[in-house]
Write a protein that binds this DNA or RNA. Structure first.
Lengths: 375, 375
DNA sequence: GTGAAAGCGCTAACAA
DNA sequence: TTGTTAGCGCTTTCAC
C-alpha cells in the first residue's frame, strides 16, 4: 500500500498534524528544521497524499464537472474543453467529463453522479449555441457554456453571433461590395445563431445605407452540398441582382460555394468574395484561397465558463448571459467587387473567363450583379 | 448540508448499516418490508451518497484518468474521448481528463494528481500514432491509446496503418489501376503512420505483381497546399509515368489533390481516382465527389483502451500492442482508370476537357500515364 | 435480521 | 512549537 501521512510522521518522528501542516504549507509557526525533516521523510517513504481523504475532510474536491451534450461529432469540442481544462488545471482543479450524447436520462444521472462525487463546480456545455432545458437537479451556480438555459437563472456564455454576422458583412462592405448575399442555415436546430447572424447582416447593410434584398437571403443545408446548391440559385438570379460578395452561415457552406464557383468559372476573390463563419481549421485555412471567416471563440468561452464556475471571475448580474466576441479572421477570400475595381492588373474588368468543358453547369455569361448583362 | 446515511437511518428508524446494505443491494437477508421502508426514507430526505466517503472506505473511486497530449488541435480527440467515455459510463465510471499539451512537466504532475485522486485506471492517449516516452510515475497497467510506450511494458492500442495502407491501395487496384501514386507525409513527427502506410502500399502493389515506381512515391506537407503541390509534381511526370490513381497520406492532402486536379481540368474519378486516409468528416464527406478514404478507428480504440484499463477485456500477452483495423470508407472518388474503361457515356475516352482561363497551371495535354501522350 | 463499532487517510480545533 | 483528538460519511465485520 502507498505511504500515508502517519508513515511520514513516524519516519520523521513527529505527529501527523505537524506533517499535514508542513506539507500543506500552513507551517508558518514551525521551524525550518522540522519542516526540512518532514519533507525529507515524506520523500523517503514516497508519500503521496490521498485526495479522497483530504476532500472528505475539507469538503472541497478541487474538481469541476463538465457535462456536455456531445463531444464527438463536432470538431469544436476540443477548444471548448481545452479552454476549460486549462483554467481548471492552472487553478489546481481536475475536470471530470461526462458526455451525455444529448440523452436526457443520462444527463440527469450524470448530474447526480457528479454531485455525489462532490465536484466543486459544474459546467453544462452544448456544442453549439442553443437553448437547452435545465436538467433536473442541476446545482445552482452551474455555468452554461455555448448555450442558454431555458428560463434563465444561471450564468451563461455564448458567442455574440449578431455582432459576428455584422462583422462578416462589414468586411464585405469595407471592400466595396453593395450586393451581398447571406446563405443562411436551413436547419430547425440552429435557430439562435442563424437568426442572430441574419440580424447582424441586416443591421450592417442598413447602416451602410443598403436595403437588404430578400432575393439575396437564401437558405441552405449547412454543408458543402448546401453551399453548392445555394450558389447555383444565386447565379441563376438576373445579372443585375447577383451578389458580388457572399456571407455564409458557416465554413462548410462556404467550401461548397468555393467548389461551385470554381466549376462555374468564377475565381475567388476576383469574381466573387466569400466570408464564412466558424473558422474551422480543416476548412477555412485549407481552402484555396484561404477563407476569411468569423471565428467562434470556443477556447475563450471555455475559459470564461470555468473561471465563473470556479469563482475566479466575478459576474455582474446573476443569471445574465455573457456574449463573447467572435473575431474576424482575415484571409484571402475577399477582394473588391469587379465593378468597382480600377482596371485590374491581370485582365479586363468585365466578363471573367468562361471555361469550356466544365462538368457541371457553366455560367459563361456570369457577371457581377451591378454590371448590366452583356448584350 | 445534504442528507447523509445517518439521516436516512434516523428517518427509517434503523441503523446505518441496514441502510447501507439496502441501498447497495447487498440486502439479501433483509426483509422486503425493511427495504421498502429504507428506500422510502431515503427518497424522503433526499439522500444522495457521498462518493468520497464511500471510496475512502472501499478503495475504489470508479473513475478513470485520461491523460492526453493534446485534445484541442485535432478533430480526432472527440471520437477517442467519446469511445472511452462511453465504456466508462456504461461501467459506472467517470472519466477525469487531463490535457498536458505535450508538456512533460505537466504530465508528471498530472500523473501524480490523478494517482492522488485514486483513479482506478489510467489511460495515456496521444492524438496520433506515435512513440511516446513513459511519464515518470505512471502506474503499471496504464493503457496507451493511439501511441506506443517507449520500451514497452504497457498494453497499447494503435491503428493498423500498414493494413490500412494496403487496403487503400487495394481499392485502387481493384478498380483496375496499375499506376498508383502515394503522396506520403513529409513530416518528421509522423514516422510510424507514414512508414506503415507506405509499407502497406508497397505490399499491395507487389502482391498485384506491380513493382513500386519510386517516382510515384512523393512527399508533401500534410495539408491541402501539400496535396496541391504534390499533384503538380505528379502531373509534371512524363505522360507514361503519370498515375491514374493516388493514395494520399491523409484527407487534407487529398483535398489539395482535388482542387489542383480541378484546376488542371481533371475530373475525379473519371480522370483520376483518389483515396485518402483519416475519414475526416469535414473533408472526406464534403468533397465533391465524396472521398473514398480509410477511417482511423478512434472510437474503437478509445473503447478498447478503456475496456482493458477497467479490466473488462482480457489481453493476451502483457505489454503487447493491439492493432486496430482501419476500415475503408467507400465513397465516390475511385473509378476505373480512363485507359481501361469502355467508351464513356459522356464523351470520348481520351483527352479530358482542358479549360481555358484557368487561373493556375492548366495541363491541357494531361492524360493518364499508360496512354502515350498525344503527339 | 439488525446494530455497534471500527476505521479508510486526512485536517483542524484545542491542549499542552 | 507540537501533539491529541475528534470527526468528514461511508462500509463491513462481528455480535446479538
Amino acid at each position: 500500500m502507498r505511504a500515508k501521512l502517519s508513515d511520514v510522521a513516524a519516519a520523521a518522528g513527529v505527529s501527523t498534524s505537524t506533517v499535514s501542516l508542513v506539507l500543506n504549507d500552513r507551517a508558518r509557526r514551525i521551524p525550518a528544521a522540522t519542516r526540512e525533516k518532514v519533507r525529507r521523510a515524506a520523500a523517503e517513504v514516497g508519500y503521496s497524499p490521498n485526495a479522497l481523504a483530504r476532500s472528505l475532510r475539507t469538503r472541497r474536491t478541487r474538481t469541476v464537472g463538465l457535462l456536455s451534450d456531445r463531444i464527438a461529432t463536432t470538431p469544436y469540442a476540443g477548444r471548448l474543453l481545452s479552454g476549460a481544462q486549462d483554467v481548471a488545471l492552472s487553478n489546481d482543479h481536475l475536470v471530470v467529463l461526462v458526455n451525455t450524447d444529448g440523452d436526457r436520462e443520462i444527463e440527469v444521472d450524470a448530474v447526480a453522479t457528479l454531485a455525489s462525487h462532490q465536484v466543486d463546480a459544474m459546467i453544462y456545455a452544448a456544442m453549439w449555441h442553443r437553448l437547452v432545458p435545465v436538467p433536473e437537479g442541476l446545482p445552482p451556480g452551474t455555468v452554461f457554456l455555448d448555450c442558454r438555459p431555458e428560463g434563465g437563472g444561471f450564468p451563461a456564455v455564448v458567442p455574440d453571433d449578431e455582432r459576428g454576422g455584422r462583422a462578416a458583412t462589414e468586411v464585405l462592405l469595407a471592400s466595396g461590395h453593395r450586393r451581398i448575399a447571406y446563405i443562411d442555415a436551413d436547419e430547425e436546430d440552429l435557430p439562435i445563431a442563424s437568426g442572430l447572424r441574419l440580424a447582424g447582416y441586416r443591421a450592417a447593410l442598413l447602416e451602410a445605407g443598403i436595403t437588404p434584398d430578400p432575393a439575396l437571403h437564401v437558405r441552405a443545408e449547412v454543408n458543402a452540398a448546401g453551399g453548392r446548391s445555394a450558389l447555383g440559385r444565386l447565379i441563376a438570379l438576373p445579372p443585375r441582382q447577383r451578389p458580388t460578395g457572399i456571407f455564409c452561415f458557416n465554413d462548410r457552406i462556404a467550401s461548397g460555394v468555393y467548389s461551385a464557383a470554381h466549376r462555374a468559372g468564377l475565381e475567388i476573390p476576383r469574381d466573387l468574395s466569400v466570408v464564412g463563419y466558424d473558422d474551422q481549421q480543416l476548412i477555412a485555412a485549407e481552402l484555396d484561397p484561404p477563407l476569411t471567416t468569423v471565428a467562434l471563440p470556443h477556447e475563450a468561452m471555455g475559459r470564461w465558463a470555468t473561471e465563473v464556475a470556479l469563482g475566479i471571475r466575478e459576474i455582474e448580474k446573476d443569471g445574465e448571459i455573457h456574449r463573447m466576441e467572435c473575431p474576424v479572421v482575415l484571409r484571402s477570400s475577399v477582394g473588391p467587387p469587379l465593378t468597382s475595381i480600377t482596371p485590374a492588373s491581370d485582365g479586363p474588368t468585365a466578363t471573367p473567363s468562361g471555361r469550356t468543358g466544365a462538368t457541371t453547369e457553366a455560367v459563361p455569361g456570369w457577371q457581377p450583379g451591378s454590371e448590366e448583362g452583356t448584350p
